[in-house]
């Protein structure tokens, strides 16, 4: 498949590969996709109390565009607010990497992974919130 230079760069030099402690209170984890479908994306975000994404890490099983999409999304959100990250859409990723039509689902997966990670963080935070109130 003919890929853009940017996609190839993200595939060959993926940014922010790795894992964080999924049990940490300030880490949100999103795992989307299925091995049977040929792609699984795990995205993790370390988020400050102020709602700023301090760090992002990914691991992806999938084709070149899936790996590049996850790499790009980690770059897009680092240092940004949760609100900003929630506004990222798959079309932004697809345009940036010039994904061919059959690979659009890779960008959808990256968007889903991002939202799943943020929601996981928010869930943890909300679960902890009542305890703070009772103090």
């Amino acid at each position: 498949m003919a890929y853009s230079d940017k996609l190839l760069d993200h595939y060959e030099n993926p940014r922010n590969v790795g894992s964080m402690d999924k049990n940490a209170q300030d880490v949100g984890t999103g795992v989307v996709g299925a091995p049977a479908c040929g792609d699984v994306m795990k995205l993790q975000l370390k988020i400050s109390d102020e709602g700023i994404i301090e760090d992002a890490r990914f691991k992806t099983f999938g084709c070149g565009s899936a790996i590049a999409s996850s790499s790009l999304v980690t770059e897009m959100v680092k240092g940004k607010s949760i609100d900003y990250a929630m506004g990222i859409q798959n079309s932004h990723i697809a345009e940036e990497l010039k994904l061919p039509p059959v690979k659009i689902h890779c960008s959808v997966l990256a968007e889903d992974a991002l939202k799943a990670a943020i929601n996981d963080y928010l869930k943890k935070k909300n679960a902890a919130a009542p305890a703070e109130l009772s103090e």
């Binding site: 795992v31 989307v32 996709g33 091995p35 049977a36 792609d39 699984v40 691991k59 099983f61």
Partner: peptide, 24 residues
């Protein structure tokens, strides 16, 4: 494989067949 969440899970002892995946 260093980049694969599946390889990581298997090395942690997770049985991939037992995971309820969110099919896309």
């Amino acid at each position: 494989r260093e980049m694969s969440p599946l390889y990581e899970m298997v090395k942690e002892g997770v049985d991939l067949k037992s995971v309820s995946w969110v099919a896309h």
